[in-house]
């Protein structure tokens, strides 16, 4: 049963990942990426990481992907997507390099003696729950957790600073003229 689920989920993930990088239209890519995230979330469930599966769907498939979609829609990229074609050499070099990465990974996975490393599937059903994770996060990992909070805060400030526009209003001949200027 688990075997079948794994096979299906992994096929979904790989296929949708391939679709993500091959679509010409970014909107399609985004939608395929959402699909991919669902596949990964399913794999998390198989591994027993229920909380992370939920976070994956909420944060990635929910928040981040909406952000992507929003930006794509806002920039209206279908019309301006002028990705130059014909640079076949560059693309093939990229493909070769990534293929080599995969070959190396495969080689190392195959040569690693996994049995000797003594892995056994988890029996404790509790290890992936929010309770378990939360108690760890708020005790041993409190400081990194706080630092991540600061990081997110800094990112918010950075985004605001990048997106800020200078708005000047002046009155000419009784008409209010609004001028917007990019700061960044």
């Amino acid at each position: 049963m688990i075997k079948i689920a794994f096979i299906i989920l992994s096929l979904i993930s790989i296929f949708s990942a391939l679709m993500v990088i091959s679509r010409k239209n970014p909107v399609a890519s985004v939608l395929w990426l959402v699909f991919h995230f669902f596949g990964i979330a399913g794999l998390y469930v198989l591994l027993g990481a229920h909380f992370l599966a939920a976070v994956q769907i909420i944060v990635y498939a929910g928040a981040i992907m909406v952000l992507f979609l929003f930006v794509v829609m806002m920039l209206n990229l279908n019309l301006v997507n002028n990705e130059k074609r014909g640079k076949i050499i560059g693309k093939s070099i990229g493909a070769v390099v990534s293929g080599l990465v995969l070959v190396l990974f495969t080689y190392s996975i195959r040569t690693t003696k996994w049995n000797e490393l003594f892995f056994n599937q988890v029996t404790d059903q509790e290890w992936g729950t929010a309770v378990k994770l939360g108690s760890l996060l708020f005790s041993n990992w409190l400081v990194p957790f706080q630092i991540v909070g600061i990081l997110l805060f800094a990112a918010v400030i950075g985004v605001v600073a990048l997106m800020k526009r200078k708005i000047t209003r002046k009155v000419e001949n009784g008409i209010v003229i609004t001028q917007e200027e990019d700061v960044a």
């Binding site: 790989i14 990088i21 693309k91 990229g94 990534s98 990974f105």
Partner: peptide, 13 residues
């Protein structure tokens, strides 16, 4: 590893 390689391919192409 497979998904990672797909990601690399995307970045490079």
């Amino acid at each position: 590893a497979i998904i990672f390689s797909i990601g690399v391919a995307g970045v490079l192409t």
